[in-house]
Amino acid sequence: MLEIKGLTASIGDKPILKGVDLTVPPGEVHAIMGPNGAGKSTLGYVLSGREDYTVTSGTVTFNGIDLLALEPEQRAATGAFLAFQAPVELPGVNNANFLRTALNAIRRAHGESELDAVQFLKLARAETKRLHMPDDMLKRNVNVGFSGGEKKRNEVLQMAILRPKLAILDETDSGLDIDALKIVADGVNALRGPEFSALVITHHQRLLDYLVPHRVHVLANGRILRSGGPELAKELEKNGYAGMIAEAA
């Protein structure tokens, strides 16, 4: 269960989130939609602990743990995963090595034994196969020389291997063709279960055709403006945000 209460956050002196209240029960997938500059990405960064943002008030708990008190890596250990809108390149760092280091760090935090290279590769190859990705994805350097679509797929692969309990997808669908979109949706759908929650930040209704959310929230001007079922996304697709924002004001 993710519970966000009265969350305000700013970058420098500029307030971005102005009181966000949001609850994602375990087992549910929620979508966050909203116009550019609404604070959608900021919400993802604040939840995962990016230092450039200052939380000015409010609370965030995940399964009863105060996320805001934790370092980013500790949040990852609680099961939080952020699929980046712009995945970062790590020159010379092999994808498999990166993922094994990450997975083992999380396993260590849980008191589990680390996987050796052979055990890890077996697991990783099974995931690439399931996601219809080529094996060489694991051999390449993290995101270096990847096309936009490959970077997004790599995020999905990382998510599949790290098996988070809370996945935050920051416009992972942007710039993807329909096949890639399905891979992203499949990646999330495969993780669905009673203990898995997801927050899917998106601009477009399209992704939600494949990744059907339990709830849709509209974030505008740093606040949740409206919440509803999957039909809300369709309504937004048809009418846009302008009317809703005007109505709220």
Binding site: E73, A77, F84, V93, T101, A102, I106
Partner: peptide, 20 residues
């Protein structure tokens, strides 16, 4: 931040990037 979000400590992240 990318490395830490994936669960690596700051030191491990620097080590990984430098070794790369």
């Amino acid at each position: 931040f990318y490395c830490r979000q994936r669960g690596l400590s700051k030191e491990d992240a620097v080590g990984l990037i430098v070794n790369g």
